[in-house]
Nucleic acid binder design. Structure first.
Length: 345
DNA sequence: TCTGGGGTCCTGTTCCGC
DNA sequence: TCTGGCGGAACAGGACCC
């Protein structure tokens, strides 16, 4: 979906159509969630500190995110997609892969889908069609907004050979900087690297992945349902806190919220963790596994508190978080009861 | 310029039991 | 009784994605 959160907001704020609109939190440490294409002209983009966005585009209209609403609209988009009757892998509220390999005329079906999304939901979408998820993903981004790009693997290799390596999902800032350090800036240059050379510099898995992706080879399946592995709640404070008692109160409240989310989904985990970010952005995490799975707010809070006491922050704290992982194995039978080892674990 | 929140996956290390 | 090797689980951190 194109600029999804902003576009959804424009449905209920039609007077803002054509204006620079930014969906973002309001605090001093907020970042931009989505910017309308008008705002992007000023250089505003996702994940940018809101303070900077405000300087770049002071006249933008600021809206706080309303994820409940976006979820509702997302469900309608996904429902239209599901009418195609093919495997669908939702990636996020605004993105999904469809396995069209069994469909006789995928281009026509996707044209229909985009038209229906536009007519019935008044929203724009971009489509990429290819022999695998990687080609489809890059193609879908290539001509946003309202893009519709169909490519073979060979066409993708040719079309993007002069693009920066960052174009490839999975090549982030660190990998791109490292590649640039070796003089590899474009996908064409990456395509000419030997797999041996990449493995030497990036390790077996990552090196091989870079080589495969440079050539737009990808055999990952469209996975309709994936089990959650962890669930977390974290908070960045408007101003740093140094008081240990206040930190423990925060952890307790987060444990309460997290417990609610877990119970809503009928999840419970054996591994409880905290995350601490100092004022200088150094971050550490600590986890502890306990004897049996839990979603009890008191138990989560007790372990979180214990972890914080055993690993006190060395500087003022800007972020605290709580996480629960280690859910039941998919399809596994209930674990036999084992004693909880809160103290010794 | 000063960096959200919610996730996944991978790697390297350490610990422990056999 | 001590030592060594091995494998799995747990843990910490980092890169990345939307």
């Amino acid at each position: 979906m194109d600029a999804f959160y902003v576009s959804v907001e424009l449905l209920r704020h039609p007077e803002l159509v054509g204006k620079p609109v930014i969906v973002s939190g309001t605090g001093p440490r907020a970042v931009v969630t989505t910017a309308s294409y008008e705002a992007r002209k000023y250089g505003v983009g996702s994940a940018m500190p809101a303070s900077r966005a405000r300087r770049l585009c002071p006249d933008a209209v600021w809206l706080p995110p309303d994820f409940a609403y976006y979820r509702e609209v997302s469900r309608k988009v996904m429902a239209l997609m599901r009418e195609l009757g093919v495997p669908i892998e939702p990636v996020s509220l605004d993105e999904a892969y469809l396995d069209l390999s069994s469909v006789p005329d995928p281009v026509a079906r996707m044209s229909d889908l985009v038209r229906r999304i536009r007519e019935e939901l008044r929203l724009d979408a971009s489509v990429g069609i290819g022999p695998n998820k990687l080609v489809a993903k890059v193609a879908s981004d290539a001509e946003k907004p309202r893009g519709f790009v169909v490519l073979t693997r060979e066409q993708a290799v040719e079309r993007f050979k002069d693009a920066p390596v960052r174009l490839i999902p999975g090549i982030g800032p660190k990998t791109a900087a490292k590649l640039n350090g070796y003089g590899v800036k474009t996908l064409g240059q990456l395509q000419r690297c030997t797999v041996e050379g990449l493995i030497e510099r990036f390790g077996e898995t990552h090196g091989r992945m870079l080589h495969e992706r440079a050539h737009f080879r990808d055999d990952s399946p469209v996975t309709p349902h994936r089990e959650a592995k962890s669930r977390s709640v974290e908070t960045t404070f408007d101003t740093d806190i140094a008081d240990r008692g206040r930190m423990e109160e925060v952890l307790a409240r987060q444990a309460e919220r997290l417990s609610g989310e877990l119970r809503k989904r009928d999840l419970a985990g054996r591994t409880i963790g905290i995350k601490v970010r100092h004022d200088d952005f150094t971050t550490y995490t600590r986890v502890r596994s306990i004897g049996e799975r839990t979603n009890d707010p008191e138990v989560i809070a007790a372990v979180a508190r214990q972890l914080l006491r055993e690993n006190p922050p060395k500087r003022p704290v800007r972020l605290l978080g709580v996480r629960v992982a280690g859910f039941a194995e998919r399809g596994a039978a209930e674990e036999p009861a084992t004693p909880t080892l809160l103290e010794s674990g």
